[in-house]
Simulated assay, not measured.
Amino acid sequence: MSTPSEPRHDGSAPDLDAIVGERRQLINLGYRLLGSLAEAEDVVQETYTRWYAMPREQQEAIESPGAWLTKVAGRICLDVLGSARARRERYVGAWIPEPLPDRGEWSGGGGAGGGRAPADPADQVTLDESVNMAFLVVLESMTPAERVAFILHDVFRYPFADVAEIVGRTPAA
């Protein structure tokens, strides 16, 4: 998992590689908040559109482009979740989140450390799919702001003060 790009103190323009290098984290954020890879990619595209629509002077004034991109993507996800709620109200039947497409792509390969793995690889796959689905169902039960706060803090390790600023609430909330 990548971290937001480091702040710049020399006043130089953001490097294109640094901006594009945030794509994986932004897709991770969008997918975990929205439960849909297609919607996550749309959020990332909209985030980059907003970045490149800014004048060069504004881009240069941003100390940490990665943090700015994450903040904007989180807010776009909140907007999408607000409109998604209306779409799901018309949906007939229980909503089931889209399963995680490729585990290696999202976790950077390797397994989760610590616990004992089941002896049969098929059991491991079943367990992984169950945990992924349960995680998405829990996220679906949260409000959009709670979902953004949970993902940014517990998954991406953002401090509560930064999360509060992104969702527009106090750190205590």
Rank of each mutant, 00 (worst) to 15 (best):
V44A: 03
A73S: 13
L26H: 01
L29D: 00
V80A: 08
G66E: 03
P118A: 11
A117H: 15
D162T: 13
G111R: 13
L33V: 14
D102W: 11
L26S: 00
R103Y: 15
Y91Q: 07
A38G: 10
R103N: 10
D128M: 12
G114N: 10
L139V: 05
K71M: 12
E57R: 06
I27R: 12
H153R: 12
F156I: 01
D79Q: 12
E46F: 02
P97C: 03
P101W: 04
A40K: 06
I151Q: 10
Q58K: 05
R23K: 14
P4A: 14
R169C: 11
L152T: 04
I62Q: 01
F160S: 06
M1N: 12
V148A: 15
P101Q: 00
Y48R: 05
M142K: 15
V163P: 02
A119F: 09
G30Q: 02
A173M: 12
I27P: 09
Q124A: 11
R75W: 02
R24D: 04
E165C: 01
W68R: 05
W106E: 05
T143W: 14
A112E: 14
S107L: 15
R23I: 11
V163F: 01
G11M: 11
G93D: 02
A94D: 14
E98A: 01
V138A: 13
N28C: 07
A86C: 09
R90A: 13
E105P: 05
T3E: 12
